[in-house]
Design a protein around this nucleic acid. Structure first.
Length: 712
DNA sequence: TCCACGGGCATTTTT
DNA sequence: TGCCCGTGGA
């Protein structure tokens, strides 16, 4: 069967338009990935394009992985020749091959935000500026912004009191990075652009190699990324940009909507295709989303529709304060589960992470398992970074910053004074810090102990470097062991240390997986990969439970039942956006939130909310008012769910301390305490296995000798 | 080296 | 109001 038969008209057009620039405006849930993958398959199978001539950019690793898998299922193993990756990983690949033109060594490492922050702090200290008055984050943001707009230190134009200082730090910072043979995230793009702009041969090499360039989430590109794309597209003009101007929600981190709005001007003769048929949501949900986003001025215009049917009305709940709001959410989910929904079908979306707390507590009390998206990331954990620091030093001897991290960890007697000496020596001699370790005997002012320790560390690192025979995972394990990190953690014998050990074990498994999947034991490749990988995209499959996350995190996801919470002026739209005049972006965020829902959509807000210790009363969000009333079911808007908070206290009759009850998850136990009354009754149960837990009687689904007790 | 205290801060997040 | 980070004391 022909692939194209499985597509609707505009989707098919997007596949068939293979010559010249094409902009695909893909509404939420319009089958974007499907279109993109079929287009690539079509190029390969029908147009005779070799996979190696295709380059596709995504923003996240998850998106890249998904695209790769789907394409390889269509075209088979040859798909491995395609370059599909995030902007950053593609940039690393280009830089690894050519960075010597820019005066870096090809064994460069990638610094994450923590690393760069430490570096900036060091610079501020070096300048003898007050760190309180000039916090590193301030420079970090300014520099990142500059790089996103492709402004080099010398092109810095703000010469205010503040601007001059930023320029100074920016200059020093770049110099230091180069000396460390390191690049930060923004540099990956920035330097790739600089490279391609400056080196005609390199540029032509890639331009003639890539006959087709695709960009996903085009509305999220910043200027530097746009330049990178332009430089790679070349004279064929075969660019296919896919995006949705209505889902542009990353303006605050440099994404420039002009890229998508002015695509037709940038690429003359461009074809524009609109994907407006939605395969995700009911018409009611789409009507609401359309109506809201219509109020924006900066947009290309699009209207989603579905053949799925009208669907249920949206339900709006006004809570007196945020606890009730959270409580209502718990009830909605509880009720949905009774109807047969899975917990993992339900998502609670909010504007800011701080709002999660109330929901977490409500879920916990209701005995509803949940998963919170957006915690600390695996590769940012201390112990993982400690091991990585060793690996980096081994790979890139110029990486003083990483060496400083491990120089006295685990403790080996190279204290502050000794470190100072070593650094001074390295600076005077113009050698990397590692080398200073090796020459410790020649350095004055070092204690005998420090001298010995430095030499031992130097020898240790030398051994690590020489040990290349074993597999990558073995190498990582060997370093984690021999460095003494694991030994130290083992000796701690605390719960926390065990967790950390487990994380290191996880890192080792990750190395093994990397080697299997990428087919190379190369340490540098692994480090480059690690630096560009976050990990929560992996968490999709574990456990089960209601999803709690910000609207930003929910982008690209879909759920049968969605609760959008905190719909108040000042919360969503956020206060800050009102001050800064970026309400349109907030509205797009609302559009994203609404279009996550497949079937059931609940909107909630609280009349009063305590934020930063202050209780305020905010009016209902303007975005709710922008939804046509008939979609929300006016009469029942608020009253419909109010009964949820009123009594039904008789239901918990029959529960008493001392009684034996069975919990669906924890089994038989004895009630040891009860608190509260009515729906709020909390039972504490001791289980013979040793656990004592508290539940809300209403939700605990406890079973006594012969009947269900306490169930709602 | 660890812990405790307190100041400062408080969208949104990926790489 | 709560958390995180940095500092300072034991």
């Amino acid at each position: 069967m022909n692939l194209l038969d499985e597509l609707n008209d505009p989707q098919r057009q997007a596949c068939l338009n293979t010559d010249g620039p094409l902009l695909v405006l893909a509404g939420a849930g319009s089958g974007k990935t499907r279109t993109l993958t079929y287009r690539i398959a079509h190029l390969i199978q029908e147009k005779g394009v070799h996979p190696g001539q295709i380059l596709a950019f995504t923003f996240t690793n998850k998106a890249a992985r998904e695209m790769k898998t789907r394409i390889s299922s269509l075209v088979g193993p040859d798909s491995r020749f395609m370059w599909i990756g995030t902007f950053h990983s593609v940039a690393v690949r280009i830089l690894r091959e050519n960075i010597q033109h820019l005066g870096y060594d090809d064994r460069f490492v990638v610094y994450d935000t923590d690393d760069t922050k430490a570096l900036i702090r060091d610079i501020v200290r070096e300048l003898n500026w007050d760190e309180k008055e000039w916090p590193a984050s301030l420079f970090l943001n300014a520099i990142s912004k500059a790089k996103n707009r492709f402004i080099a230190p010398d092109q810095w134009e703000d010469h205010s009191y503040f601007g001059d200082r930023v320029q100074d730090v920016y200059r020093r910072y770049q110099k230091r990075l180069k000396g460390l043979n390191a690049l930060d995230f923004d540099d990956l793009i920035f330097q790739s652009v600089a490279l391609l702009e400056g080196q005609a041969e390199v540029r032509q090499h890639y331009q003639s190699r890539f006959r087709h360039v695709l960009v996903d989430e085009y509305q999220d590109t910043n200027l530097a990324q746009y330049k990178l794309v332009r430089l790679l597209v070349g004279p064929t003009g075969n660019i296919c940009a896919v995006g949705d101007d209505d889902q542009s929600i990353y303006g605050w981190r440099g994404a420039d909507m002009r890229n998508i709005l002015e695509f037709q001007r940038d690429f003359p003769g461009a074809t524009v295709v609109r994907l407006e048929e939605n395969y995700r949501s009911t018409q009611v949900i789409l009507d609401a989303a359309n109506a809201v986003v219509k109020n924006n001025r900066d947009r290309l215009g699009k209207e989603l529709w579905t053949s799925k049917g009208t669907g249920d009305q949206i339900r709006l709940y006004r809570a007196p304060e945020e606890e009730s709001e959270a409580w209502y959410a718990a009830e909605v989910i509880h009720e949905a589960v009774r109807r047969g929904r899975k917990l993992s079908d339900c998502a609670i979306l909010y504007r800011t992470n701080a709002q999660s707390r109330a929901f977490e507590m409500a879920m916990a009390r209701a005995g509803i398992t949940y998963r919170l998206v957006g915690g600390k990331r695996f590769y940012e954990r201390k112990e993982v970074k400690d091991v990585l620091a060793y690996l980096r030093v081994v790979f890139n001897p110029a990486d003083d910053l990483s060496l400083l991290r491990v120089i006295n960890y685990p403790r080996r007697g190279i204290g502050d004074v000794a470190q100072r000496r070593l650094r001074d020596y390295a600076l005077e001699e113009g050698v990397p810090l590692v080398q200073a370790l090796g020459q410790a005997d020649a350095i004055e002012g070092l204690s005998a102990q420090a001298r010995r320790a430095a030499r031992e560390l130097w020898e240790l690192l030398g051994r690590f470097r020489a040990d290349t025979g074993a597999s990558l995972a073995d190498r990582v394990r060997y370093i984690a062991e021999t460095s003494g990190i694991m030994l130290q953690l083992r000796q701690e014998r605390t719960r926390e240390a065990d967790d950390r050990l487990e994380n290191i074990g996880e890192l080792i498994s990750e190395a093994k997986r990397f080697e299997e999947e990428q087919g190379t034991p190369d340490l540098g490749e692994f480090l480059g990969w690690v630096a560009l990988v976050s990990d929560w995209d992996e968490t999709d499959e574990d456990g089960g439970g209601v999803w709690l996350m910000t609207v930003h995190s929910a982008k690209g996801l879909e759920f049968p039942l969605v609760i959008v919470a905190g719909l108040e002026e000042g919360v969503f739209p956020h206060m800050r956006s009102l001050d800064e005049g970026t309400v349109e972006e907030e509205r797009r965020l609302m559009y994203v939130a609404l279009t996550r829902a497949e079937e059931e959509l609940y909107l909630t807000y609280a009349e009063t909310r305590t934020m930063l210790g202050r209780t305020t009363a905010n009016p209902m969000s303007r975005f709710v008012r922008e939804i046509p009333e008939e979609l929300v079911g006016r009469g029942q808007r608020i009253a419909a769910v109010d009964r949820a908070t009123s009594g039904a206290s008789h239901r918990i009759e029959g529960l008493a301390p001392g009684q034996k009850v069975r919990h669906p998850r924890f089994g038989w136990g004895t009630i040891v305490a009860m608190r509260g009354s009515g729906d709020e009754t909390e039972v504490t149960i001791a289980f013979p296995g040793g656990g004592v837990r508290s539940f809300l009687a209403k939700f605990a689904q406890l079973i006594g000798e012969d009947a269900e007790l306490g169930g709602a």
